[in-house]
Computed example of a mutant assay.
Amino acid sequence: MKTLLTIALLDIKESFRSRWFLIYLFIFSGIVASFFISGVMESRVLGFSGLSRLLLLFIQICIIIVPIFVLISTSRTILQDRDLNILEYLLSYPISQSQYYFGKALGRLFGVSAPLFLSLCLAIIFGIFKGASVPVLLCLVYTGILFSMCVAFLGIAFLICSVSKSQEMGLGLCFFVWILALAFLDIALIGILSKTDISENFIFGVALINPIELFRISAISLFDPDLSVLGSTAYFVLDSFGSSGIIAFSLIYPVILGLACLVFGFYLFRKKDLA
């Protein structure tokens, strides 16, 4: 365990020196700052104002940016070490493959989630400073489903690391997964529904397997428990899960998906020639 935590700490320190981490932190902190400068909290849209209004905008940004950043930054973790012969050097020490692999995963999880949480904390601090009411429970639940989505794509990224032969191949697979996940938000599912006789409940069920779609629906349900903006999809979600059930599902399923991909990736990682 001590060795695993040491590797995780080394990866965290490497993240702090990485330009990707700094750009990621700057983007989200800058976005939050721009929200306050532009007076978003003072505006009211569909009854939402203050921090609730800011979080609604934050959701739309996270849907696009978070998955691709987690995939790209994480996919390079093991592949870069292997290309630079760092992996072979580290494994020459009394470090097992599992300690290296899961230590990297733990450190990378901190690296991809810390900027998001810092940005949310920044939003809450500014909100308190401006005298806005802070929906504590809403912020905690939103942080939880955001963390779950990070775990899901982190596991997928490590699985991509395990099957890729080079960094270029890994980046290509990451973009493919990201585009596929975005396409199944609306475009692909609407096309399938209109061109085939497949049950719409089956289509809606497929949509909820997508971590991005699940994050989107559960985040919206925090502000709109009736999911009125989703149209007919809301009936399937509410009948199948309920307003609280969909949030619980969004907290549990992405974590299970991410851990399953992580473990399967480790199985493939052990089978490959690591040198």
Rank of each mutant, 00 (worst) to 15 (best):
residue 253 Y to P: 01
residue 207 A to M: 14
residue 229 V to Y: 14
residue 65 I to W: 14
residue 247 I to S: 03
residue 218 S to D: 09
residue 253 Y to N: 00
residue 135 P to S: 08
residue 98 S to D: 11
residue 12 I to N: 15
residue 14 E to K: 14
residue 205 G to F: 09
residue 4 L to A: 03
residue 124 I to F: 01
residue 57 L to D: 09
residue 52 S to Q: 14
residue 268 L to T: 04
residue 59 I to W: 06
residue 151 V to I: 10
residue 266 F to G: 01
residue 129 F to A: 15
residue 173 L to K: 03
residue 273 D to Q: 06
residue 108 R to S: 11
residue 173 L to D: 00
residue 52 S to V: 08
residue 128 I to H: 06
residue 248 A to M: 14
residue 167 Q to P: 04
residue 200 E to N: 12
residue 109 L to E: 06
residue 128 I to E: 12
residue 196 T to K: 01
residue 259 L to W: 01
residue 31 I to G: 12
residue 25 L to W: 01
residue 231 G to M: 09
residue 84 L to C: 15
residue 237 V to A: 13
residue 24 Y to P: 02
residue 37 I to A: 08
residue 60 Q to N: 11
residue 271 K to I: 02
residue 72 I to N: 00
residue 96 S to T: 15
residue 26 F to D: 05
residue 218 S to V: 06
residue 175 F to W: 11
residue 172 G to I: 02
residue 42 E to M: 09
residue 3 T to H: 11
residue 112 V to P: 03
residue 45 V to Q: 10
residue 84 L to D: 15
residue 209 I to K: 02
residue 120 L to K: 10
residue 42 E to W: 04
residue 84 L to N: 12
residue 173 L to Q: 02
residue 97 Q to R: 15
residue 120 L to D: 13
residue 98 S to H: 11
residue 88 E to V: 13
residue 135 P to E: 06
residue 173 L to F: 08
residue 112 V to S: 03
residue 166 S to R: 04
residue 14 E to V: 04
residue 98 S to Y: 15
residue 227 L to P: 03
residue 227 L to D: 03
residue 63 I to D: 05
residue 239 D to W: 11
residue 227 L to E: 06
residue 242 G to N: 09
residue 35 F to L: 13
residue 49 S to V: 02
residue 194 S to F: 03
residue 11 D to I: 05
residue 232 S to L: 14
residue 30 G to L: 04
residue 201 N to I: 08
residue 31 I to A: 13
residue 272 K to M: 10
residue 220 I to W: 01
residue 61 I to W: 10
residue 124 I to Y: 02
residue 8 A to T: 02
residue 7 I to Q: 08
residue 8 A to L: 05
residue 227 L to V: 08
residue 203 I to N: 04
residue 223 F to H: 13
residue 248 A to I: 12
residue 219 A to I: 05
residue 124 I to C: 03
residue 237 V to Y: 15
residue 231 G to A: 11
residue 176 F to M: 13
residue 28 F to R: 00
residue 195 K to I: 12
residue 71 L to A: 03
residue 113 S to K: 08
residue 142 Y to T: 00
residue 157 A to W: 00
residue 26 F to A: 13
residue 167 Q to D: 03
residue 179 I to N: 01
residue 220 I to H: 06
residue 90 L to Y: 14
residue 233 T to S: 15
residue 167 Q to I: 13
residue 223 F to A: 09
residue 189 L to R: 10
residue 101 Y to M: 00
residue 69 F to G: 06
residue 109 L to C: 08
residue 190 I to G: 12
residue 102 F to Q: 00
residue 116 L to Q: 10
residue 208 L to G: 09
residue 265 G to Y: 04
residue 32 V to S: 03
residue 6 T to I: 14
residue 166 S to N: 07
residue 195 K to C: 12
residue 53 R to I: 05
residue 264 F to P: 01
residue 173 L to Y: 04
residue 213 E to C: 04
residue 240 S to A: 12
residue 197 D to Y: 13
residue 42 E to I: 09
residue 143 T to V: 10
residue 210 N to M: 03
residue 172 G to W: 05
residue 45 V to H: 09
residue 92 S to M: 05
residue 249 F to T: 01
residue 93 Y to G: 06
residue 31 I to C: 14
residue 220 I to F: 07
residue 205 G to Y: 09
residue 169 M to L: 01
residue 263 V to N: 13
residue 230 L to N: 02
residue 46 L to Y: 13
residue 219 A to P: 04
residue 123 A to E: 07
residue 111 G to E: 10
residue 27 I to T: 06
residue 59 I to Q: 12
residue 184 F to I: 10
residue 163 V to S: 00
residue 66 V to G: 01
residue 233 T to P: 09
residue 42 E to F: 10
